[in-house]
């Protein structure tokens, strides 16, 4: 049986964050909460990169990758929030149900 080693714990954290993030994207109806879901998802990816760096003995490379991802993800989130603000202005709501006029 595998011990509760740090890598295993990190792996569990990665999987858990991914699962929760995806679940959030599936069930939430509020646009800002969708961004929260994305954040959770990317945190999982961040940990995965760091874990990968550790497992392959290249912690520093893993760190640099994570740094770039943090920057990219923050930018995406900011743009998403700006979009949400604009959506609220134009649609009057953040409900995804209202945001489904383009269909078929």
């Amino acid at each position: 049986m595998m011990s509760l080693s740090l890598p295993l714990m990190a792996a569990v954290a990665v999987l858990g964050l991914l699962g929760i993030g995806l679940l959030g994207l599936l069930v939430t109806r509020n646009l800002i909460k969708v961004v929260v879901g994305l954040q959770v998802l990317v945190k999982g990816a961040l940990l995965a990169l760091l874990l990968a760096g550790r497992l392959s003995g290249q912690v520093q490379t893993g760190q640099t990758l994570a740094l770039t991802v943090i920057v990219a993800d923050t930018i995406v989130s900011v743009v998403a929030l700006a979009l949400a603000v604009q959506v609220r202005r134009q649609f009057g709501t953040l409900d995804l149900q209202a945001l489904s006029t383009l269909r078929r």
Binding site: L38, V42, V76, A80, L83
Partner: peptide, 22 residues
């Protein structure tokens, strides 16, 4: 706006998946 939201969120999910792959 609606198209922008869908584009952004779905792209972001895609790139997160790619990161896991990496």
């Amino acid at each position: 706006l609606e198209a922008g939201v869908k584009y952004l969120v779905q792209s972001a999910v895609g790139s997160a998946l790619v990161l896991i792959g990496i």
